[in-house]
């Protein structure tokens, strides 16, 4: 498996949200704004890289029968450690992100990558898979968040300076001043709505790309592991 392929899979073909449809719980819960989506995505990426690397490092010692509890234990420990260190040493960031950190355990994309990739591949490839899968997840969450935020509140990346520091305040754009807001876009149903539209757009684009390349359109063979 070459590294280019890993990158392409993570960002597009096997995108956690847009192809594998994993991690729906955090996807729906936090994408009320672009900043929230970005924050959740980045926190998940850190955990994904670390958990993939560790799982790959110990993969020969873990027998098939007990691998799931071992992986879950490792992931939960990692998330808790990230949570505690953020709280202690990056407290201002924690006040923004803290809400999401615990949710990462419930993101089965992390377990999914440990099981589907890291348990069979060397450490470097696994860490890279974690990185690109994480960034693909971040991209999808940010995109959903931005659409919901734009229609729901008329802004883009509001409060980004809380997440990224005061230097990034330039990202905060009020697209429509004095906008009344569309409440539904901020409530959970719009999460499904926007995700559905994004999925449809991705499929349309892929069909179009396949047709213009004159090859038979093949839907991406997503590995569905079966959780929310």
């Amino acid at each position: 498996m070459n590294y280019r392929q890993i990158m392409k899979d993570g960002l597009w073909t096997q995108n956690v949200v847009l192809a594998q449809l994993l991690g729906m719980c955090p996807t729906m819960a936090v994408t009320t704004s672009g900043t929230n989506g970005l924050g959740m995505g980045l926190a998940t990426t850190v955990v994904l890289v670390a958990s993939n690397a560790i799982v790959a490092a110990i993969r020969d010692f873990v027998s098939h029968q007990v691998r799931i509890p071992v992986f879950i234990g490792l992931i939960a420990t990692m998330v808790t450690l990230v949570d505690m260190s953020l709280n202690a040493w990056f407290h201002d960031l924690y006040k923004v992100l803290g809400l999401y950190i615990a949710l990462i355990v419930a993101n089965c994309a992390v377990l999914g990558r440990a099981e589907a990739f890291a348990a069979r591949q060397p450490v470097v490839a696994s860490a890279l898979d974690g990185l690109w899968m994480g960034l693909g997840f971040t991209g999808a969450l940010t995109a959903i968040g931005l659409v919901r935020e734009l229609i729901g509140a008329g802004t883009l990346f509001s409060q980004a300076h809380l997440l990224l520091g005061p230097k990034f305040a330039f990202m905060e754009i009020t697209v429509i001043p004095n906008y009344g807001g569309v409440l539904m876009m901020i409530l959970p149903p719009a999460g499904f709505l926007v995700l559905g539209l994004l999925l449809a757009t991705k499929r349309l684009y892929e069909r179009h790309a396949a047709r213009s390349a004159d090859v038979v359109a093949q839907p991406a063979a997503a590995q569905t592991i079966g959780c929310h």
Partner: peptide
């Protein structure tokens, strides 16, 4: 045995993490 060892390692990591961050938190 392997499950037990992993559980011990993760518990130790958590205990250590808690000890290291408790005061600062």
């Amino acid at each position: 045995l392997s499950l037990g060892i992993i559980a011990m390692i993760t518990s130790a990591a958590l205990a250590f993490g808690n000890h290291a961050t408790h005061g600062d938190i």
